[in-house]
Simulated scan of single mutants.
Amino acid sequence: MGNPLILQSDFGLGDGAVSAMYGVANCVDLDLKIYNLTHEIPPFDIWEGSYRLLQTIAYWPENSVFVSVVDPGVGTDRRSVVARTHSNHYIVTPDNGTLTHVNKDIGVAEMRMIDETINRLPNSGASHTFHGRDIYAYTGARLAAGVISFEQVGSKLDLEQLVMLPSMDAYMESEVLYGIIDVLDVRYGNIWTNISRSQLVDLQVQYGDLVKVTIEHESAIVFEREMIYGRSFAATEKGESLIYINSLDNVAVAINQQSFAKKYKISTGVDWKVFIKKT
């Protein structure tokens, strides 16, 4: 029996793209277990694709194979790679920054260039716009099924050449926590920061305390208000703001039963700064 194959993309489910990837994988091995991480990454949003891998990968067994295709550079000279993490998971992806969060928090142990003369869907050589099907799903399925080993993916790459997106580590200075908005809890509109629970503890903030939250975008303040640090949404009334600890043990900002991101037009990435101060 092979290892799990988990697919992620910005393709959506409105056409046959994801089904084609499933079909290719099943042609490699009908017994493969194939799962979706998500196919609702916003189009071309490499940053969010990177974060969703980190959000998910640790909860899958060792040797699981992830295929992540958020690929605005398809058809260019960007590299197609397979990375092995220090947690012994595999990620098949374009080397365009998709590995940023995983490399920072888990670590990439080894990376190999996909040899397309071997690991490419037969008779697809004239297609240059659907590498998710022709290269990534095909290579990922072969690796998950044990048809090829990691060493047979292709030549080993220097990890110093790994493409990383700009990012910023959270830190504390003068009793203020500084971080960024890593991602949105998209269905509910909560914002997830990269400030950890342990850093909030270092600030000596406890449940029920008030904190001042400031959010800046490109040095302009877009939100600033005091709110409670709650164990859960039950700490506030409907429509009130709070900070809480999310499922990745980081600080999140929310409005009880409303979308914080939509109300204040908040997005994600290194240009979206968050400051937290105990009041």
Rank of each mutant, 00 (worst) to 15 (best):
F223W: 12
V81F: 05
R120A: 04
K104E: 14
A141M: 05
T268Q: 14
Q206P: 04
A109M: 11
K277P: 04
I34D: 00
N256H: 15
E240S: 13
M113E: 15
D10C: 08
S241G: 04
M168H: 05
D158G: 10
T268S: 14
V201G: 03
E237S: 07
Y171S: 00
N63E: 05
P43G: 08
A25I: 06
L7I: 09
D209S: 05
D29Y: 01
H39L: 13
Q206S: 13
D10Q: 09
A17V: 10
Q152S: 05
F66P: 00
I57N: 04
L177N: 08
S174K: 15
L159P: 01
A141E: 02
V222A: 06
V67N: 04
F66Y: 08
E240I: 09
P72G: 04
G132M: 04
S50N: 13
I245V: 10
T279D: 00
D29Q: 03
V28H: 11
T236N: 05
S219K: 15
H39E: 11
R142C: 08
V153W: 09
L32N: 04
L159D: 06
K33Y: 12
I243A: 08
Y138A: 10
P72F: 00
W60R: 05
R133W: 05
A145C: 01
S87D: 11
D71P: 07
T268H: 11
H101M: 14
I215N: 04
H86V: 02
S64I: 12
G16N: 15
R112V: 12
N256Q: 10
L7H: 12
V270C: 00
L165N: 03
A254W: 05
S219M: 11
R231N: 09
V70Y: 07
L248H: 14
G73T: 13
T100D: 00
R52W: 10
F130V: 07
W272P: 06
A141F: 02
V65P: 07
L13Y: 11
S80V: 04
L184Q: 05
V74S: 06
E240P: 12
R79Y: 04
N88E: 09
A144E: 00
T129E: 00
D271C: 07
G49K: 15
E226R: 13
R225M: 14
I191C: 12
V183L: 08
V176M: 02
L159N: 13
A235P: 11
I91D: 02
A25P: 03
Y35L: 15
T76D: 03
G230K: 01
R142S: 03
V108P: 00
R187H: 08
G179A: 09
E40G: 13
D31F: 07
T56V: 01
K278H: 03
M227S: 03
I46K: 14
S198V: 12
N123A: 06
F150R: 02
T85R: 10
L53D: 07
K238L: 08
Y264E: 03
R78N: 08
D105R: 12
Y207K: 12
K277E: 04
H101K: 14
S149C: 06
V69L: 11
V67W: 02
L32W: 06
G154D: 05
R225A: 15
L5S: 03
I114Y: 03
Y264M: 06
N96V: 10
K265G: 07
I114L: 02
S124Q: 08
D169C: 11
G75D: 09
E160S: 10
A145P: 01
T139H: 04
I106F: 00
E40D: 13
